[in-house]
Amino acid sequence: MRTLTNVLWRLWLPVLLVVLWWFASANSTNLFVPPLSRILGVMGRDFTNGVLLQAMSSSLSNLALGLLIASVVGVALGLILGETKRLRLILDPYIHFVRSVPQSALVPLIIGIFGLGSASKIYAVALACVWPILLNTIDGSLGVEVGVRRVSRVFGIPRMLYYRRVVLPGAMPQVIAGIRVALPIGIVVMVVSELFASNVGLGFYILHSSSTFRIPETWSGALLVGVIGYVLVIGFSLIDRQILAWYHKSGAR
């Protein structure tokens, strides 16, 4: 009973807003603000005929690949920088500068160099996502306890093993936090790069429909991207809790 009231408390306002939108827009004659029923109808239609599924799969695979590259590069570099103080001090101002470049400004350059295809989208996502992961990994590796470090040195643990079994697990909570910060950035860059220039993907669906004045499609594409972004972010934080269950349980935070 208590959970039910809780759910009701959480749901009534969002539901009310959607219902309001539904009825307020029902008889909308404004060309640019179509009725919600039409937007959802169009979305359903394009889902069943596969247009949106195809767009989604190409967008999401680009996002996943970009994020994967960013994670591998960011974690590897982050562990190295975290363990070598001199290098970290030297590169610190440059890393902070590059990270401060608004990621959306890179999109025209990357697309100009790598063309319209998915390679440019993947690079754009990777380049934007690598910084939070890198910085968080550095933080995480710095957080590995001095005692643990000394013990592994005393026992002469080989370098690679030390990185794999000592520093990486120690930095893992920070690495995951970095990926969680990077994910929404990646989604934004994915959308921006597709809206800038593309011939497939969700951004293309939105862009193409707006340039051919199919306004309900534009709205449904924008809403779909929003919902996908939300689902991804929420889904990731659930996975995060699974992966790091040991850490949350340990009360180390």
Binding site: F32, S104, P184, I187, V188, V191, V192, L195, L202, I206, L207, S210, I215, T218, W219, G221, A222, V225, G226, G229, Y230, L232, V233, I234
Partner: peptide
């Protein structure tokens, strides 16, 4: 969690 930039084409209209 909403990638706001997706609304840009709609806002443009």
């Amino acid at each position: 969690a909403f990638p706001t930039i997706a609304l840009m084409p709609v806002m443009m209209l």
